[in-house]
Design a protein around this nucleic acid. Sequence first.
DNA 1: AGCACGCCGACT
DNA 2: GTCGGCGTGCTC
Length: 792
Amino acid sequence: MYARIVVDVNAKRVDRLFDYEVPEQLKSVVQIGMRVVVPFGPRKRQGYIIELMDEAHEKELKSILHIQDMTPELNKELIALSEWMQTTHIAKRIAVLDIMLPRAVKGKYHKVYRLEEPEEISDELYTLFRKQQVRISSLSADDILKLKPYVESGVITEDIEVNQQQQVKTLKAVELCDINVEQALATLRSDKQKDCLLSLADEGRLTLKELKARDFSAAVVSGLEKKGLIRKIEIEAARDPFAHRTVHPDAKKVLLTEQQAAYNRIRQSIDDEEHRVFLLHGITGSGKTEVYLQTIADVLAQNKTALMLVPEIALTPQMVERFKARFGDEVAVMHSGLSIGERYDEWRKIRSGQARVSVGARSSVFAPFENLGIIIIDEEHEASYKQEDYPRYHARDVAFWRGSYHNCPVVLGSATPSLESYARAEKGVYELLTIQTRANQFPVPTVQVVNMRDELAAGNRSMFSAELTRAINDRIQKGEQIVLFLNRRGHAQFLLCRDCGHVPNCPNCDISLTYHKVTDELKCHYCGHKEYKPLTCPNCESEHIREMGVGTQKVEELIYQHFEGARVIRMDNDTTSRKGAHEQLLTKFKNQEANILLGTQMIAKGLDFPNITLVGVLNADTMLNLPDFRSSERTFQLLTQVAGRAGRADKEGHVIIQTYNPEHYAVQYAKNNDYAGFYKEEMTYRKIGKYPPYYYLVNLVFSHAEMKEVLLESKHIHQTLLQHLSPSSYVLGPAPCTIARINNQYRFQIIIKFKSEPALLEALTYLDDHYYDKFVKNKFSLSIDINPQMLM
DNA sequence: AGCACGCCGACT
DNA sequence: GTCGGCGTGCTC
C-alpha cells in the first residue's frame, strides 16, 4: 500500500505528488486528507495524503513517518477542488490547500488530545495522558485506533496546543466576600462605597472596567477591599465572541409577492437537487435576507447544509445575530476577528456536522460541509470576494464549482449586481429574480446632487456645500442623526508646493507620499518609507508647501469647527482596527452618544438605525477618477448603497451627494436609483472599450530592479503569448503599470483581452513553468491575475 | 524552498 | 593541504 502526497514545500519545482510507502502499523489508520510527516530529501516535511493505492509500487519507496491527524482535515471534495484550482488559477497545489484550511492546522501548531473524563477509559490508555494531554506524534498507530472512539464520543477532546499565557485572557474583577450585606452597609460611612457594595450584591461580580464605567474609582474599590468586604479575582475572558449577548429567537416573516416568487424558484432548485445559479436583484430594504433565511431553513429541514457568504465589512454583529436568532447553535461564524483557536472551533463544528449553516467572509467558501443544499453570496458585486494576493481566487468561482459538485443552487444577491452577473442573467446563463418593492414599506429617500464647482464659484472653499451645511445644522437641532461618507482615511493625501507645484514622492516608488499628522511624517503605503515633513519645499525652498486632499481625520476637525453641537464618531481603518472596536462605535452611535457618523467604505453597509435622516457624500469624485475601467460601476454601487442608509424608518430620509462632476452618468443614475439605466449605458462603454462582460481579461505584471531587463523580458513574453493565443485575442502592452515602480522594482504589465480562448490556460501555464527558472535566477517576478478586479 | 554536493580561490 | 565561497541539481 502506498500514498500519493503533496509535500508542504512552497516551490514550483516540487509542486506535484510524491509516492510514499504506508508502513504496516499505519495501514489501519491512514485516510485520504490526513496530514502526515514524511522524509523529503535530507529532511522531514509535512504533507497531505491525496490518494491511497492498495497495490504495491513498482519502485522502492520511502515510508510515511507518522500521522498528524486522528481524523482527516480535508475531505474528498476539497481535495478535488484544490486540484481544479491548481490548474485553473495557475497556482501551486500546496498554496491552494493552505488557504482552504484554518491556520490552526498549519506548520507550527500541534494537535493535542485532552482527557476530559478519566473514569471512562482503561488504565492502559490512561497512562498515555501524562499531563492530561498528549501530542499525536507520541502515539502509536495502535493507540490511535483505540483512542479514536473516545474522541468521537467526547471523553477525549481534540485541540491545538497553544501558549497558555497568550491564549487565556483574564480580566481583573472583584466579588463580595462572604458577608452580611446589610450589616456591612451599616458600618460604611461613604455613600460611594455603599452604592458600590449594593451594585456588587446585585450583580455578583463586576470587572474593574465595569466599575470604572459606573463611576466607582479605584479608591472606592480598594477601600472596600481593605475592610475585607470584597476581594479581587481574575476571570477568564469569553472565548465565544458572541457568548455575552442574549439572542432572542426570530420567527419567520411572511413573504411579499416578489419575495415569495424568488423563494419558490430557489426552493424548486433545492428540491430538484439541480445546480442552478440565481441572480437575486433586490433593492435595498427589499428583504433579500428573509428569502435567504427561509431557503436555508428548508435546506436544513431536508437534512442538508447551507453556506452563506457576506463581505467582511457586512459581517456585523447585527447580521450574525439575525442568523443565530433563526438557527441557534447550528450556525458557525467565520470572520477575520476570530482568534486562531476560535476559527478552528468553528471549522470543526462544521466538519463534525454540529453546525449546518455557516456565515462568513471570502475564505469560508471552503467550509468543510458535506451534503450542501444551497450556497448564497450576498452583495455579490463586492470586490472583496476576490483575493488580491496569490493564489488569486474569486469566492464566486469556487462557489459555482461546489454548487456543481453538490448539485445545489447558488444564489447571488445584490441591489447593484456586477455587470458580469447581470449580463449573464440577461443571457439566461443565470436565472434572474427581481424584487422591486421595499418589504419594510419605507419611502425611498430623496437624493440631491450638489455641484461643488458652483460652490467654489460662489466663494465657498470648504468641504461643506451651503446645502449640506444647512441640512447638518437642521438635523443637529432636531436631534436626528447624520452619516457622512468620505472615501479616504488619514489626514491629508499629499503635500503640494503652491509655488512650483512640487509633490514629495517616495524615493523607492513612483507614488506621492501620504501625510500623517499624528507623527508629522510623510509615509509611503507601498514600501513603508518614512520621512519627516519638510518645512520648506525641497525643490524651490518656498514656504508655501501645503497639505492637499482631505482625509477622515481632517474632516473630523473641520466638523467641530463648522458645526456647533456636533458630536462625531469616526470610523475608518485607523479607529476600527482593534478587535471589537467596530461594534463598540456602532453601539455608541445607536445609543445616540453622537449625532454624526463619519466614515469610509465600511459605513456603507449594514447600518440600520432608525434615527438617521441625512446622509452626505462629501466627495463622490475620489473613486470616479481612479484610472480603472470599473470606477463608474464602483461609484454607482457605492452611492446607491450609501443612499440606502437614509430613510429606513418613519422619518423621511435625505441624501446629499457633493461632486465636481454632477452630470456624470454614474452619479445621475444613482440619484434616480436607476440600475437598469446605468447598466445599459455602462454596457455600451464596456463594449467599445472591449472590457468585461464583453471580454475576459488577464493581467500579467512583471517586475525587476532594472527597467531594461523588465522591458526586454516582457517583450519576449508578449511574443510568446502572440504565438500561443488565437488571433481573435488581444495582447496589449507591455506598458508601465499605473504605479511604475514599487520598492525599487520597475513594473510593466501585459493585458490579454479575449472572448473565447481555448489555449489560455495552456499558454499561461507554459509561461509560469518555462520562465520560472529564469525568473528565480534573475530575480524576476511575474504575477498572473485572471479576471482581475483592478488593472492598476 | 532547502539542503548536499562539488569545484575553485586564499589562508593557518 | 583544507576551509569556505556559492553555482547546480534533487527531493518519492
